[in-house]
Design a protein around this nucleic acid. Structure first.
Lengths: 111, 111
DNA sequence: TCCATATTTATAGAATAATCGAAATGATGA
DNA sequence: TCATCATTTCGATTATTCTATAAATATGGA
């Protein structure tokens, strides 16, 4: 993780719609959600603006997509998330013990 | 943590200068660093632009300040950081076991 | 008091990002 | 093939954020 990648990811998350999309996908697990369902759940429309935000999250490497018939499913990229969180807290607290724990979230096959 | 606070924090971090400041302060521990030292370490200048970025991080609740003589020390707000990280990963992976660990970083008195 | 240092505030212009509506693409089933 | 649904692309407009510069405030020392 370098600083450019990190700011791109943070910028992508720094928007209400995108943050809600991302959190919902993180919660959805490995199966992901298709655009229409995602929009419905977040009480918004699957229009140009929504598509733009999905692309921003994709571009930042935070989510990926997969086509299934005429639906496109988006899925959270868990390793990318863990990298970002790790980057924020790296070498914290001047090396003194502070109860630091690396965050880890690696979904199982079933999820 | 609500979504507005979260986007404010992420927006604050989504800038190269501010992210570098923040990471440096997280690493500095409870003592923090004064503006001039911070700027020197990050190879930038303690000018209006730098001050603006510090204020953005402050406004977002990510850092705090304390005056000591004519120096102002900035300090990372660790609980705020932990709240933000927790917010991003809340209820991840559809409730299935995924090795999730809450991040925790609570500096000791000495730090 | 006067000066130097540390930091912030103010303001304006430049750069970036967000929103909207309409048109375009691509997959599916009748 | 045609109509339809799901989604993206494009272009214009508006809003937000960044940078730079100068001036202002506050502190401590001569």
């Amino acid at each position: 993780m370098d600083i450019e990648l990190a700011t791109t990811a943070l910028k992508a998350l720094a928007h209400e719609t995108r943050l809600r999309v991302y959190r919902r996908l993180v919660q959805a697990g490995k199966g992901g959600l298709c655009v229409a369902d995602l929009a419905a759940e977040l009480d918004t429309e699957a229009n140009g603006s929504f598509s733009f935000h999905l692309k921003e999250l994709s571009r930042a490497g935070l989510i990926a997509s997969r086509q299934e018939g005429r639906f496109i499913f988006y899925i959270a990229d868990y390793p990318a998330m863990n990298d970002l969180l790790g980057y924020l807290t790296e070498h914290c607290c001047a090396g003194l013990p502070c109860g630091e724990q690396q965050h880890a979230c690696t979904p199982t096959e079933k999820a």
